[in-house]
Each structure stands twice: as structure tokens, then as C-alpha cells.
Design a protein around this nucleic acid. Sequence first.
DNA 1: TTTTATTGATTGACCAGTCAATCAACCCTA
DNA 2: TAGGGTTGATTGACTGGTCAATCAATAAAA
Lengths: 196, 196
Amino acid sequence: MPKIGMEPLRREALINAAISAIAEKGTLAVTMADIARRADVSSALAHHYFGSKEDLLAATMRHLLSELGADARAAVSGKSGMARLSALIHVNFSPKQFQPETVAAWLAFYVEAQRAPALRRLLRVYTRRLHTNLLVALEPLMSRLQAERTARGIGALIDGLYIRHALAEGPSDADTAIALVEDYLSLQLSRKEGAR
Amino acid sequence: MPKIGMEPLRREALINAAISAIAEKGTLAVTMADIARRADVSSALAHHYFGSKEDLLAATMRHLLSELGADARAAVSGKSGMARLSALIHVNFSPKQFQPETVAAWLAFYVEAQRAPALRRLLRVYTRRLHTNLLVALEPLMSRLQAERTARGIGALIDGLYIRHALAEGPSDADTAIALVEDYLSLQLSRKEGAR
DNA sequence: TTTTATTGATTGACCAGTCAATCAACCCTA
DNA sequence: TAGGGTTGATTGACTGGTCAATCAATAAAA
């Protein structure tokens, strides 16, 4: 039990505790005491390292965001065309990202982001990144206009499936979700151009 | 200024005030005092009529739900086939239902429903109703399996577009959303059966 | 000894829910 | 038609509890 260099360990533990607490309560309205308890420290320590609840939550969201970003980067690296598109879709439903805990936390942040400018900006980063990635991958395969629409459709579809996943009673499975999105993608790809 | 028979008026005012407060704060964590102030009554009166905050919020969600149900019933009445499907899609994006205020409130309820069994049950009613309505309208037009998938896709698409609407900065418009969903529907309808 | 880690105790704000007390309408009946 | 009683409407003030944030104190490492 080292007593030195605890900061990074505590920060990580507190962020994970925050995700778990948020997922369990289904809202950002969890207490610092609850989060701290899950990380096996006092609430005072949580304040010591993060300054305020708002800062801890922002750090938690940033953590979620950067994990997803890293996963996405790893998934598409070296791929192009359809393989890249498919990989892009798959990350969002990978066991790690589609974990009920993670999805519930995402959803809570989504909602809170409406009125919290800091969270809102963070969320926009994710939305834009996904959209851009999709667009770049789609543009060689269809018209710009159709690519734009398809990217928007896939984005909305993913968000919708996340919500439904968070609310599902039984174990809604990732494969079905992936199949739904890929089906949408393949329909767009097979569309007769000009069939406006 | 009648002093009698105020109950229905107050209940309605309080429910509307709740919607407005929830939409503005973006969460169900609004105070009874805030809601009551918006309805121009004391918080004590809100408790008098609704018993508890939880009851007021449940009543508010029921109100949202029944409004949407009524709109949907009116929209599809007398229609069948494609017209019925189109009408079903359109209600969700009608000016009344797609109002930022309404959408934000819906979203807040969605999230809170994760851990509030009462709200969860209410929400399930809506989800099932939409799904069933879509399914019934789709089945004459395609295979059962494809109808199932298409209904799920439309539902997820609508949810996703709602989220994005709630978070949009500028005035994201309903027509684009409708076009996106109808495009998805028309792609599913024009699919070559057996092209599994 | 200085710095880092850590906590229990405390503070100040906020909030749901309760209650006793007013006020206004309506309903008798003499 | 003038009271007197009843009931619904309404509120201000209060209570018990919760929570974020602060702080002073302790312990251990450097």
C-alpha cells in the first residue's frame, strides 16, 4: 500500500466510481459521497483532487470520450472503403462501449449537456467526429448529398439504439443493433442514384 | 376570478409548468417551488393537489403520453397503407410534438425512467404502441421479418432524431427529420425481397 | 522539516413535505 | 335577507434531511 504517488490512482478510481454511480442511478445527480465511497476514499479527498463535483463529472465525460476516440482510431487504422465504415459502426457496439454501464452514463451526460455548456462542448466533439469520419468514408461511395444524409441517418440510428439499449429490460444484444445499422448502410449503398 | 372549481385548472397549470421547468433545466431535478412559481401558486398548493413531487412528475409524463397518443390516433384515422405509415411518422415531428420544450421533457423522462419503475412502465406503453402501429401498417407491405426490422429501425431513428433535436444549437428542422425517416422507409419498401 | 495523502467534523444552502391559519364562496334557515 | 356554519382554496412559516464544499488536524514519506 504505497502512500506516495497516489494521485493518478485516485483520479482513475474516482472516475470509474463516478461512471458506476451514474450508471446505477441513471443520472448525474449522484452525491460526491456516493462516488467517493465506491472509490474507497472520503468525499473530502475527491474534492481535493478534482476541486468540485462539476470538474469531476467533466473529467469523467472526457474519459468516456477519449476511450471511445481511442477505440475508434484503433478500429479504423489501416482500413478503407466498406471495411472502414463497418469498423466505425462496430466500435460503437463493441462489448466495451455497449456495456450497459457505459451506455447509461453516456445517456445521462447527453441529457445534462443540454444546459451545461462545458459538457455540451465536449459532446459536440464526439458528434462531429463521428459525422466527419462517416462522411469521409462515405463520399467515395456516393454523392456528397447522399453521403451527408446517410451519415446523419447512421448517427441518429446509433443514438436511438443507445437509448433503447439503456432502457431495455432483458439483454438487448449488440449484434442485432449492428445488423440494423449495416442494413441501413447497405440499402443506401445499393440505392439507384437519381431515384430521388 | 372564480374561487371554486379550481382543481382542474391548477392541475393543468402545474403540469404545464412542470414541462416548462423540466425543459428549461433539462432534468427532472427541478424544485417544486420552481414549478409552483411558474404556475403562479405556492409550492404548498402543488403538494395539496398532487401529493408528492413524484406524483406530479408521473402525471406530467402521463399528460405528454396521452397528448401524443391522441395526436397519433387523429392522424391515422381513416388512413391505410402508405398514407397511414406516413401519418405515423409525421405526428412525431408535428410542430406540437417536436417543440423543443416537449422534446427536452421527453428526453428527461427517458433518462429518469431507467430507475423509476413507474415512469419506466409508462414509457414502455409509448414504445410498444408505436412499434405495434408501425408493424401493423408495414406487414401488408413486406415480410413479417422485414417489417419487424423496419419498425425497429424507424423507432430508433425517431428516438435518435429527438435526442439530436434536443441538443441542437440552431433550429434543427422537422422537415429534414421527416425526410430522413421516410427515406429509410422507402428504401425498405423498395428492397428486392430475398436480397438478404 | 516540508510536502503529500487523508479524513472527520462542520458549515451554509437548498429542498420536499407538513401544518395551522386565513380567505372566499356556497348553503342553510329563521 | 341577514347571519352562521361548512367546505374548498391558498399560503407563510417551519422542519428534518441532504449535500457540496471547506477546514483543521493527523499521519506518513521525503
